[in-house]
Structures are given as C-alpha cells and as structure tokens.
C-alpha cells in the first residue's frame, strides 16, 4: 500500500473530523489549509502522473496548481446550486481528495513515490540554517507590524457621527437618530457633547474615553420645522473639536 496516499486519506479524514469541532483552533487551521491547497492536488496528481514519471519538484508544482484549479472550478460549479459555506467546501474537498486518492491507490497500488518519503534531510546544519532564516524573516514581519502600529499610534483623531438610526432595532416607533464617537487619541481624553435644535440643547454628555474606546447613543428625533437641522457639537479637552448636522424626517 502506498504510504503517501494513505497519509493523504488520513489527513483528509482528520481535517473532516476537526472541521466538526465547534471552535476554530490552530490545529484546525493546520489541517484545513492543506485540505484546500495541497491534498486535492496531491490526490489528483497521483492519478494524472504515474509514479516516477515526473520529478519531485514538478509534482509539487502540480500538487498546488491542481488544488487551486480544483477549488476554483469546484466552487464555480457548486455555487450554481448551493451557497458556498464552510461545510460545503470541506465536504467537497474531502470528497475529491479521498475519492481521487482511492482511485490512485487502485491504479498504482504498489509503486510508491520517492516523495515525500525520501526527502533528503541529510544536512542538519543546512536545515538549521533554513530554520534560522525563517525565524529571522518571521521576526522581520513582526517588527514591520510593530513599526506600523507605532507609526499609526502617532496619528490621533476621533470619529464623530450623527446618523439616522433604525427605529425598529431600538424598539421605538418614532424616528430615531444616533450620535456617537470613537477615540483614536492615543490617550484618555475628555469630550463634551451637545446635541441641539435651533439652539436648544436636548442631549448633553461629558465623556472620558480611552484610546480605542467608543460611545454611542440613540435618541428620538425632535419635532423640527422643515429643513431645520439637528446640530451635534463636540469639544475635546475644553476646545471646540467637531460639528455635525442632520435634518431629521424628510
């Protein structure tokens, strides 16, 4: 029995089992990424190209490209009749992988590939060097992420909005408005909010928000003459900061 195809079937079955678990973990990602990008192509390539007719590297190219083409074409056809979701994808890819692997096992039962069983890990120093290179590259990406976060943390601003709200969502019968703000100030800041109609303040709040914190509030739109807007003014640390306006109920 070919160990490589047996391994492919086992991995596909394991992926199907893991997919049944409710929580998505690193283990499920580890098994399910190959189910999309590796296993279907491996099983198909085992059918299309008999053992020892193509080199290992060439087979690896086919493994990935056939997987990609299978997912693309399969998705295209399936979505004509079914919505694509996690279950559909996993069932489809599992079926293709296991079906193709079983067929290859019948066609070429006792002609094992050299790959992956004979991958030459003969040089521990070389393997170590590649591992160190991968770690350095990983650290470089992490450092780039940190650098981006640091640069972005220096850009300080606050989102401020005043929009019509979904009355049904808040269980109200009259027209609702929503006012809100989200702080990206990089430090705790004090905000004073005043919402008014024709100079009459009907909503006033003093807020202290930390970086990343948000606040929002829905309220009934006041009776207003046609074309007269509700005005929301925001001050930050005692200084005028933002102003919005919205004409309710048109």
């Amino acid at each position: 029995m070919r160990r490589d195809l047996a391994l492919v079937i086992a991995l596909a079955l394991a992926a199907l089992l893991v997919a049944l678990l409710p929580a998505e973990t690193w283990l499920s990602a580890l098994l399910l990424v190959p189910l999309v990008l590796i296993l279907p192509g491996y099983a198909l390539a085992a059918n299309f190209f008999a053992p020892r007719t193509v080199s290992r590297i060439e087979r690896a190219v086919y493994v990935v490209t056939l997987s990609i083409a299978t997912v693309a074409i399969g998705g295209l056809l399936i979505q004509l009749v079914l919505g694509l979701n996690r279950g559909v994808w996993i069932a489809f890819l599992g079926a293709v992988t296991i079906g193709a692997a079983l067929r290859a096992l019948r066609r070429y039962p006792d002609r094992p590939l050299e790959w992956p069983a004979a991958v030459p890990w003969t040089l521990p120093v070389a393997s170590l060097a590649f591992l160190v290179a991968a770690v350095i590259a990983g650290l470089a990406i992490a450092s780039a992420g940190d650098g981006l976060r640091e640069a972005q943390s220096r850009i300080r601003f606050t989102d401020f909005w005043l929009v019509p709200a979904d009355a049904a969502a808040v269980g109200a019968s009259e027209e609702q408005l929503e006012v809100g703000l989200r702080s990206h100030e990089g430090r705790p800041s004090r905000f004073d909010l005043r919402v008014s109609l024709e100079g009459r303040v009907f909503l006033s709040r003093s807020l202290r928000l930390r970086a990343g914190e948000s606040w929002q509030r829905s309220f009934a739109a006041p009776e207003a003459p046609p074309g007269v807007p509700v005005v929301a003014n925001l001050t930050r640390d005692g200084e005028r900061y933002r102003r919005l306006d919205l004409v309710p109920e048109r």
Partner: peptide, 23 residues
Amino acid sequence: PALALSAAIGVAVIAIANNGARL
C-alpha cells in the same frame, strides 16, 4: 542555507528601513 540567511537578513533590513521611513 547560508544565502537563505543573507536573504532573510536582507528582509529584516528592509523591515527596519520601512519602520524608519514611517517615522
């Protein structure tokens, strides 16, 4: 393997350079 190391160091140098460019 040695040249993979030098390439990885090159990537790291670019990451640091980009961090500097952002600032």
